[in-house]
């Protein structure tokens, strides 16, 4: 239960942790775009290098980042198999009915799998190195243009941060209630699906009751302190880009340039040997 992967901040004292959340958000978006731009395996190598460097700089154990892939491994394998069997390539190696495996298909499914894995690894770096509050503050700030057309960005940000804040509280509550019902002989890991679903009722009902109670109490506490989303609220933590952010932006920009260059295959003429064509296609 403790392994809920939302709001999975991993505390450490690193370059990435100290970056401005807004900058990190923008860089992650740039990273996503970059991953979608990539065409050949050489360029993928550059992106992998980028993720590995990012992980090292963030001082997050590689095992932690790899763990984030576990949740999407099924999706990755599923798409890889589909791509492998249905991609229409020229160099057919094996075929049956409408299914065919081609050399191009193999390359394509490897690239798609890499793309998904790199996407998840890159974005989890953001959630590992940024506190939930940092994330919502950053988003609010980035939503500034929407504010000009009267979108209540501050309210949205507050709702998001309260929701995020409640995840660990509720998961703790689930732990407690489950323990209490286990102490009364309840069992959550035996029996078929129907029995297991039924066994969750004694957990879900108290959980909802307490969630509503907490929400009420929070609303009262906000009211009691005269909270309202006035336009000129001051902040406890003010985000300020520093030289670090400049370095991070420059680094990412360099990677994007590198990837684009590799993509356009400036080396095309210099393919070291014909047998390495697959690296550059």
């Amino acid at each position: 239960m403790r392994d809920i992967t939302l709001g999975q901040y991993y505390p450490a004292d690193s370059f990435t942790h100290k970056l401005d959340p807004r900058v990190k958000l923008v860089l992650v978006i740039a990273f996503i775009v970059m991953v979608f731009l990539v065409k050949n395996l050489i360029a993928y190598a550059a992106v992998i290098l980028c993720v590995v460097l990012g992980t090292l700089i963030s001082r997050i154990p590689i095992s932690k980042v790899l763990k984030s892939i576990k949740t999407i491994i099924f999706l990755v394998l599923f798409t890889a198999v589909l791509n492998l069997l249905f991609y229409k390539g020229d160099t057919v190696l094996w075929s049956w009915w409408r299914i065919s495996v081609s050399l191009e298909g193999i390359l394509f499914s490897i690239k798609m799998a890499l793309r998904l894995i790199l996407l998840v690894m890159g974005t989890t770096l953001l959630t590992y190195t940024t506190t939930p509050t940092g994330l919502t503050d950053g988003m609010e700030s980035l939503m500034y243009p929407l504010k000009l057309i009267k979108v209540p960005t501050h309210d949205i940000a507050v709702i998001m941060s309260i929701a995020l804040r409640f995840i660990p509280i509720l998961s703790e509550e689930v732990d407690k209630i489950m323990m209490a019902q286990k102490a009364r002989g309840a069992s959550f890991d035996t029996g078929g699906i129907v029995k297991r679903a039924k066994a969750l009722l004694p957990v879900l009902i108290p959980l909802f009751v307490s969630a509503f109670r907490r929400a009420d109490e929070l609303a009262l506490a906000l009211d009691a302190r005269c909270y309202n989303a006035t336009p000129n609220r001051t902040r406890y933590q003010i985000m300020k880009p520093t030289y670090r952010d400049l370095i991070a932006v420059a680094g990412t920009a360099a990677f994007i340039v590198l990837v684009v260059a590799l993509n356009m295959n400036f080396w095309g003429a210099y393919v070291p040997s014909e047998s390495l064509w697959w690296l550059f296609s």
């Binding site: 407690k176 323990m179 209490a180 019902q181 004694p202």
Partner: peptide
Amino acid sequence: GMLFQFPEYQLF
């Protein structure tokens, strides 16, 4: 038998 803190929140 085990009685938790604030056991009233286990009623369902």
